[in-house]
Write a protein that binds this DNA or RNA. Sequence first.
DNA 1: TGTAGGGCCG
Length: 695
Amino acid sequence: MRSCRALQATAVVKSSLQLKLKTSTEDTCISLIKQCHTLKSLKALHASILRSLHLHLHSLTNLISHYASLGSISYAYTLFSHCNSFSNDAFLWNVMLRGLVDNAHYHRTFLLYTRMPYLHIAPDNFTFPFLLKACASLRILNLGSQLHAHAFVYGYSSHVFVANSLISMYAKCGLFPVSERVFDKMPQRSIVSWSAMIGACLQCGFHEQGLLLFTRMLDQGIKPNRASILNATACVRRENAAHHMHRVIMDNVLDNDHSVQNATMLMFARCGRIDLARSLFDGFTYKDLVCWASMIDAYARADLPLEALLLFNQMRLQCVLPDSITLLAVIQACSILASLHLARTLHAVIIRCFLECQLELDTAVLDLYMKCGSLTYARKVFDNMKGRNIISWSTMLSGYGMHGHGKEALHLFDQMKALIKPDHVTFVSILSACSHAGLINEGWECFDSMVRDFGVTPTSEHYACMVDLLGRAGQLNQALEFIEKMPVRPEAGVWGALLGACRIHSNVELAEIAAKSLLNLDAENPGRYVLLSNIYASLGKRREAYRIRNLMKSRGVKKKVGWTSIEIKGKMYTFVAGDRANPEMDLIYSELGKLMERIRQEGYIPDVSFVLHDVEGETKEMMLYAHSEKLAIVFGLIKLGHESSIRITKNLRVCGDCHTATKFISKVTGREIVVRDSQRFHHFMNGTCSCGDYW
DNA sequence: TGTAGGGCCG
């Protein structure tokens, strides 16, 4: 209840306001409107204004604008409806259009615009930017082009405000060349034009071009503003460029700006300098939610889930409440760890929060459960979702695919097709589901139906899935022929699929053909070198294997450190090869030795070709035994009850020898062992794996 | 009355 003193204070304010308004000019009235930071205070002022003086149109327009900016679009619209007949000035309409756009009422924005000609109100250079922004938000290219034509008819298409908005609109709708053309033809450019064009490069993935444009802008003596710096910073992908950009930011004294600080931090993280990102983060005197969320997300993207979760806890300890976007980053981190316990806790937090972006969160949680190995929970989330978009359907499909449940994926795909038109991602999901489950004919049928039934043109990624499918069937030459006949240029994934097939079928000739393209197209990817070198090694071509390892070294490509994690009673344990960090390591190694002996008796033969180090046979075997996968499995066997299945997660593709050994372990221990690797899930049971030895 | 920091699927 409000106290008596508070009521008195409000009365004093009100009476002074009345006095001010009585003697006020329109300018002071507008300035008073601008001082209102809450809807309540604005309404109070509005009431006072109504009592005190006749409102001029200019003040009214400001009032409408302010109501809209405080989120009260209904108040704004009511006011607008009462006064739009007094004037045929576009100003009032522009303000209302802006209010609608800013509050995401895009369709109402277009409706309002269509009423303008009937009232003989001509749009002006301010009208089009708002409408184009609405088109950009909805990605409606047709409408955007129509508005472009309208702007041309009214003589505003080259106006700097309008052209700037056209650049952004076309880029958001994916038509980069048109953005470029608008920019090139502008008779005059402002800093906003440059910023919008750099933003367009960013939007369409032309990062280098965006940076070149930024440099060109600086060379022309144009002082960068905040937006151009933000866009250019987001274009940076290399460490050198990052340091250079950091200097530009400091030279322009923008390093105290929150958005710029945040963008700088993300830039270093993207360039592989998560350490620099963290030290910037630690140095920020004020950390807002965006800043916390960005750093958490950066850790997750850098494959450092524990750091991400630790930071999330610190954030909560400082009483910063997470929003949906922060939680999405935390979900990503959790899905790397594949901790089902953590997933359930996080899910509970999300359910309690009643956050925005429910659809996105539900989809992320669904993805999380499936990556934690629980298709059951994932399906439950999917079934309980209030609405489903194409992403949620595709996620569920890929979930079935990852677990090798091809038939279920196809069944779901049938249901989906009746409700929603599949897109290119859906087809990647369903094709890879067919491939993972070995459903060759069904895969071909899906591939054929893409263009025929849905008008989706296959991209290189779809061809990669088909190469994988052919490879699984052992049709390697057909796969090569298929690649050669592709109407689009085969990207790394296509050759990668062929190389993977060559590993399974020990075909060194085709492997070399695949590798030739691959080591150029995907030269930065350590996995490609490792795979080729392993193929050579498995065929006894040690010299060739070393050559590839050396090539990798000379190109400065670093092999990713492999780790395997296992969750025991809600706690995550992570192992790396030859690990000695766990305090129970002596026990683990002794149990490992016994287990290896048991499976050898069952017929397991260590495949030492996976060890390249120049060491003697017995030591080699020891090195194989100490692989992180095996250490984690043994730890699970020691710690978990006899009934429970062993679930482990490897950050890279599972090693061939470990795959064989795990089959034997599942046989001798009678345990179900579930391995999640970077590609898919392997369910081991009674000596066989759900992947059918193809991955 | 124009641009603008973090986010779901393969």
